[in-house]
Design a protein around this nucleic acid. Sequence first.
DNA 1: CTACCGTCTGTAGGAACTACAGACTCAACC
DNA 2: GGTTGAGTCTGTAGTTCCTACAGACGGTAG
Lengths: 137, 137
Amino acid sequence: METIAIGELSRRTRCNIETIRYYERIGLLPMPARRGRYRSFGLADVARVHFVRRARELGFTLDEIRALLGIATAEDMACGDAREIAASHLQQVRARITDLRRMERVLADTVRACDAGDQVGCPLITTLSATAQLGTI
Amino acid sequence: METIAIGELSRRTRCNIETIRYYERIGLLPMPARRGRYRSFGLADVARVHFVRRARELGFTLDEIRALLGIATAEDMACGDAREIAASHLQQVRARITDLRRMERVLADTVRACDAGDQVGCPLITTLSATAQLGTI
DNA sequence: CTACCGTCTGTAGGAACTACAGACTCAACC
DNA sequence: GGTTGAGTCTGTAGTTCCTACAGACGGTAG
């Protein structure tokens, strides 16, 4: 079977070499075989790194990914558990979007005020100096 | 004029004591006067910490806030510069929202597939194992 | 006098990488 | 055979924005 070096794994997965070694260090990837001093990877490693990177793109934390990997490779794949992780993560993503939309509104209003230029003083500085808490806006 | 201790400053600004000291350490807050060994703050410090916290709530980085503080306290307040910082930050916020919405869509679809339960295997694991990059979805 | 709270300094940790330094290995080329 | 160059190795330190101690000191109330 084909074995590849870390550089090739990095190229195929678009994952930084240092990041791959980091994933190994924290136990997300199994310790690979060695050819001499060099790490020697197989196709399963390519798939696993792809999996991790895709999950990261979806914003899963490394701890969540660790759990997902456990589920993915378990004999009796606990799909319900995976659903739970995804659903809880989805909630967090939605909360974050709500946050960011609030920020966006305030920022956009402020920049608009800047462009209108009919205020005394700088609208942004005024916003940041205002007594009102953002939470109450 | 009134002077307050760090605990009172923390209470008034809802900013952690340790965080206040941290802001001082990195130069976001001026080194305060001391009464004996204890820091002694004035109303300007209250306003400044409020400013920083509000800017953080809007997602500005501490470096951006440093610049904004410079502008806010300059003689000839460079409002245009502040507008630039805000506009550029607004762009980043919007980009982040776009990212998160993509994540949300994939996650929501996957959880829905889980609930439908008409797939072979776990939809989440399948999604993460798929060859397609998220960027291409 | 002794509790007790507040404050002090300095350092370490967390998340998820990234970026070196300095040493080694391996294949190719002359 | 020598040497270049690319790849890899380990180990450590930096990034951002805090947060959490440990261990010592200050000021006040009972």
